[in-house]
């Protein structure tokens, strides 16, 4: 136990430290917190669906939850059930084998609902494009409010995408 406590003390709170003085992160964080507080009473719930990505975007969504970016600290939480979610985060081109599951997830969310498409594939179909197996961009399958480019987009870009969707919805 003492080793754990010592390690926690040694680490400190890195969320506010911003080791490389990332101004865009600071600005995004502050605005996100304000908007979530105003529009969602302080708690936004996200459901993520990987509709066919290479798994790169998932790594960055995880990173948005690491202690540096600390998405949960802003009142933004990931839920297991679409029925609890305000916002759907979709990664990947939509594979035809995931099309039905994505539509059902979207339909299961209560209205009003927001959709943010993540990554070049979510925006355009990316390197995979459209084919016998891929529907390409997410908006070919469900309505999209905000699309975040990048391969993969950085955690800050993902946070900015979420922020834009919330701000637009107000």
């Amino acid at each position: 136990m003492q080793h754990i406590l010592r390690q926690i003390a040694r680490t400190g709170i890195v969320t506010e430290a911003y080791p490389e003085a990332d101004e865009s992160l600071r600005a995004t964080t502050e605005r996100l917190q304000r908007e979530v507080l105003a529009a969602f009473d302080g708690a936004l719930v996200i459901r993520h669906v990987d509709a066919g990505s290479c798994n790169g975007c998932e790594l960055e969504i995880h990173a948005a939850n690491n202690p540096y970016h600390n998405l949960e600290g802003l009142g933004i939480r990931f839920a297991a059930s679409p029925r609890h979610a305000d916002l759907l985060l979709v990664t990947g081109p939509v594979s035809r084998h995931m099309e039905e599951a994505l539509k059902r997830t979207y339909d299961a969310m209560p209205a009003p609902k927001l959709v943010v498409a993540i990554g070049d594939c979510g925006c355009t179909g990316g390197v995979f494009g459209e084919s016998y197996a891929s529907r390409g961009r997410v908006s070919n399958v469900i309505p999209v409010d905000v699309a975040v480019p990048g391969c993969p987009p950085t955690p800050v870009a993902i946070m900015q995408g979420i922020l834009t969707a919330i701000a637009r919805a107000r």
Binding site: G92, S95, Y132, A133
Partner: peptide, 11 residues
């Protein structure tokens, strides 16, 4: 598995 099949080899 196979849900993510997006035709990589054809591409």
């Amino acid at each position: 598995l196979g849900y993510k099949h997006k035709g990589i080899e054809k591409r």
